[in-house]
């Protein structure tokens, strides 16, 4: 259906975060995901992108399609080289925040996009992958 493609966007400023949201939206629209699916995916991307920006000191977002050799779907990988997360379970729990935020970022994004993977270690940065399948 769609030829494989990928796009990597920087996350270094508020404007970059807006561009990542716009790109995720555009890809979702192209693949005819419905409005609620689009909104959830873009909102999750916004939370995760902000985490990479604020807590990770900047990073990148990589969009890929299709996923797992399927006919479509979108995968977004957020990567930063910040301090990493020591206790992932705690970071995912509601209301946990070290940056003065609401602490909804990680846990909230996971609630919005069920297919959610996180890899992090202290000093090694953080990688979060969200996937939506067709």
């Amino acid at each position: 259906m769609n030829p494989p493609r990928s796009e990597t966007l920087p996350l270094r400023s508020d404007e970059d975060l807006v561009r990542v949201r716009q790109a995720v939206r555009a890809w979702m629209v192209e693949q005819n995901f419905n409005l609620v699916e689009q909104t959830k995916m873009v909102t999750a991307a916004s939370e995760l992108g902000r985490n990479a920006l604020v807590y990770g000191g900047g990073g990148s977002a990589r969009l890929e399609s299709p996923v797992d050799g399927g006919h479509g779907g979108i995968r977004v990988t957020f990567e930063d080289h910040g301090p990493g997360i020591a206790d992932i379970a705690q970071a995912l729990s509601n209301g946990f925040s070290t940056g003065g935020g609401l602490g909804l970022g990680l846990g909230g994004a996971k609630r919005l996009v069920k297919d959610f993977e996180i890899f992090s270690e202290p000093g090694q940065g953080t990688r979060v992958i969200i996937t939506i399948r067709k």
Binding site: K40, E47, N94, R111
Partner: peptide, 8 residues
Amino acid sequence: ITIVELGL
């Protein structure tokens, strides 16, 4: 819908 699921 998204706000509610996000937990805001």
